[in-house]
Simulated assay, not measured.
Amino acid sequence: MDFIGLPIPICIECGSTSNPCRCKVVGPTLGFLAFAAAAVVEWPVGVVVYCFSREKGRRIMGHPSTIVYPSVKDAIPI
């Protein structure tokens, strides 16, 4: 019997200078998963806040892409 599960995204970033092989797989992949988890929570909250304060709502909805993904991706050098 075959295993049917959720597909796991694999992100590859080539050309980085943070390791000798010049490619990163673990950092960008975990960064994407953290981005997706944060987006599931923050985007609905951002939509509600956007109804009252557009600037604050935009910042909340942009938080996963501007803060979460880069910080997780850069924290893991491989």
Rank of each mutant, 00 (worst) to 15 (best):
R59H: 08
A36K: 12
P64M: 02
R59D: 10
A39D: 11
H63G: 00
G46W: 08
R54Q: 07
V48F: 12
V47H: 03
I67A: 05
F52D: 10
A38W: 09
T66D: 03
A39I: 06
G62E: 05
C51F: 04
V45N: 04
Y50H: 08
R58C: 13
R54E: 05
S53G: 05
A38E: 12
H63K: 01
I60Q: 02
M61K: 02
R58K: 15
S53R: 06
V49W: 11
Y50K: 09
R58S: 10
W43K: 09
A36S: 09
R54H: 04
T66F: 03
I67Q: 07
R54N: 03
P70M: 03
Y50Q: 06
Y50T: 09
V68K: 03
G57Y: 00
A37P: 06
I60M: 04
S65R: 01
V49Q: 11
E42D: 07
I60G: 00
V47T: 11
S71A: 13
V49E: 12
R59N: 10
P64Q: 03
T66P: 00
E55R: 01
W43Q: 13
T66L: 08
M61R: 05
A38C: 14
R54G: 03
E55Q: 05
V68N: 06
K56S: 03
G57H: 01
G62H: 01
K56W: 02
S53N: 14
V41R: 14
M61A: 08
P64T: 02
H63F: 05
V40N: 13
A39W: 13
H63V: 02
S65W: 01
E55K: 03
R54C: 01
E55D: 04
V68G: 07
R58A: 09
R58M: 14
V41P: 00
V48E: 14
S65C: 06
E42M: 14
G57S: 02
E42K: 13
Y50R: 10
R58T: 10
W43T: 13
V49G: 12
V47Q: 09
K56T: 11
S71W: 00
A37R: 11
S71G: 01
V72C: 09
V49A: 12
V47W: 07
Y69W: 11
S53I: 02
H63D: 04
E55C: 02
S71D: 06
E55L: 07
S53A: 10
F52L: 12
V41G: 05
S65Y: 02
V68E: 10
K56R: 04
A39G: 10
T66Q: 04
P70N: 08
A39L: 14
S65V: 06
V48N: 12
P44S: 13
E42Y: 08
E42Q: 14
R54L: 04
G62N: 08
P44Q: 13
Y69I: 03
V45C: 06
I67D: 07
V45K: 11
V68S: 11
A39H: 09
